[in-house]
């Protein structure tokens, strides 16, 4: 195990984040604050409780997930795409590091950033809404697992993309709609029955539901199912990454 190698990649990625700290931290905080001002304070005040939770508090887990997913993907995809773009990936390919170590470095850093950001958003939310966390450890577990899973997905996108527009297209066209429709701002049982069934094929539903359960003990689907779905998705991503390095897809001709 090349610990120094993993640490180098991890540090390098974190340093990149700190160099662009304003962009990396301030902009998600501002956008989340805007959500709270609009949906939490302005509109939320006129809405009733959802599943016994005030609307402002109800949307917090969904908003955190929204940022978590998009930040995990964009951090991880950019992290691996950029060396490909500039050519510096030659060094990683010629280094004595295994697939697992490369992924651990890149995905570990991307997931760390996302988790930190998620916690920061939770702190920001505290300024607007008073909420409690019923299962803090589970909350953290959901946060970490989701961050890792979607950083893995981001890593795959970064390897697949051969232009900056491709890098943007998956988060924009797939992830954002899925999270918006996945119950960030409403409970699934507020939907007409047919749409409730359809919503169940949306993976974001399970993430948001499980995460919300760790806050308020209420969920759209059973917690075990949520965890199972995350695990399944993570395994799927790991499988794809294993295949990528095995075949050299787009990185090692």
């Amino acid at each position: 195990m090349n610990i120094y190698g993993v640490r180098s990649i991890y540090r390098f990625e974190m340093a990149r984040w700190f160099r662009t700290l304003t962009q990396s931290i301030v902009s998600p905080i501002i956008s989340t604050s805007l959500y709270f001002v609009v949906f939490g304070a302005a509109i939320g005040a006129r809405m009733g409780e959802v599943n016994g939770v005030s609307y402002g508090a109800f949307i917090i887990p969904g908003l955190v997930m929204l940022s978590l997913l998009s930040e995990s993907i964009s951090n991880a995809s950019f992290g691996i795409y950029f060396p490909k773009f500039t050519g510096t990936i030659y060094e990683i390919l010629s280094a004595p590091v295994s697939t697992f170590e490369v992924v651990a470095g890149f995905v570990g850093a991307a997931a760390t950033k996302s988790v930190l950001l998620g916690l920061l958003i939770l702190l920001t939310a505290r300024l607007f809404v008073n909420y409690h966390i019923a299962h803090p450890l589970w909350m953290l577990a959901f946060l970490v697992l989701t961050a890792i899973t979607f950083s893995l997905l981001g890593f795959i996108i970064g390897i697949w993309a051969d232009g900056f527009e491709k890098l943007q297209i998956v988060p924009l066209m797939i992830i954002t709609p899925l999270t918006f429709l996945g119950g960030s701002f409403y409970s699934i049982d507020m939907l007409p029955p047919v749409w409730q069934k359809i919503a169940l094929i949306n993976p974001a539903v399970y993430l948001i539901s499980g995460f919300r359960w760790s806050f308020y003990d209420v969920s759209d689907v059973a917690v075990g199912v949520s965890l199972g779905m995350i695990a399944l998705f993570m395994l799927l991503c790991l499988g794809i990454i294993y295949w990528i390095f095995k075949t050299g897809y787009k990185i090692r001709p």
Binding site: N2, Y4, S8, R11, G87, A95
Partner: peptide
């Protein structure tokens, strides 16, 4: 390996990038 193309991380310092390489190669 010193490749043909000049591929470097433009935003890194010389010190950081050389130390990065050393670590990457397990030292």
């Amino acid at each position: 390996l010193v490749p043909q193309e000049l591929c470097t991380d433009s935003f890194e310092t010389v010190w950081a990038t050389v130390n990065f390489s050393r670590g990457l190669f397990g030292k």
